[in-house]
Amino acid sequence: MQDFLTALAAHDFLRNALIAGLLASLGCGLIGPLVVIKRITFMAGGIAHSVLGGMGAALYYGVDPLFGALLSAILAALLIGAVRLVWKAQEDTLIGALWAIGMALGILFIASTPGYSTDLMSLLFGNILLVSPGALWFMAALDALLLAIFALFYRQFLAVIFDEEFARLRGVPVTFFYLLLLCLVALTVVLLIQVVGLILVIALLTLPAAIAGHYLHSLAGMMLGATLLGALFTSSGLALAYAPDLPPGPVMILLAGAVYVLSALFSGWRTRARAHRQAAVSRGG
């Protein structure tokens, strides 16, 4: 740990990585609980994987891959949302198709890119150590956008994810907020891809929120808890990966996964213990 702190003081790239992790935590903290509560993890996975198509196309045409990622993520989100809202169809098949088609397109574009030298592994698994100062500003701007939107419309999002029909009856523009939510999920996916790559993004999006949900029973509480846990996992993962020279993304995810499993076991045990205690009190009374 001492080595890591010394290196942190000495190297810009490590400081950038730490800042990237903290900025990503805010995104996963705000959006993760909505994904977990609304049970749209599979949808977020579809959006994440379709991003490779956009990144590949951007590389092929010589555009910034981040732009391609943003565009394809938003398109995928709107397409999935439209299928559910307009055609009232089950979106599972479309998500599965987007998932695979995005990956296939991305790989074809990348394979066809003349003089291609980008490491496919860094797109798939991310490389937080290569995050540029420009990407940090982009991440900070996305966080600011997420914060502003939730500050203004927290109640509307809560109403829409809680009970769409009732929200519609109260005059809340449900379609708008549902599509906005999917677009924010798409933006967050792109934000997190900088840190852990598109394969692992779902874990960072859902695990901190799911752990927070074991102990906190309000959306706002889960958002705060998931942000703090995300900050803990990204920072600790970076520190743990430093000495043995491991890729930080997978270390962060394994750390989050281990805490999730332990937390789920503890939470289940606690619920059973409470039920036994309650039954004992009832028998005694």
Binding site: L158, V172, H217, G221
Partner: peptide, 21 residues
């Protein structure tokens, strides 16, 4: 993850975008 009070408060939510925090 929501309390009864929050559920009931949703009944009083404003129409449209009503961006009052």
């Amino acid at each position: 993850p929501i309390s009864v009070e929050q559920v009931v408060a949703m009944g009083a939510i404003g129409a449209g975008f009503d961006p009052r925090p």
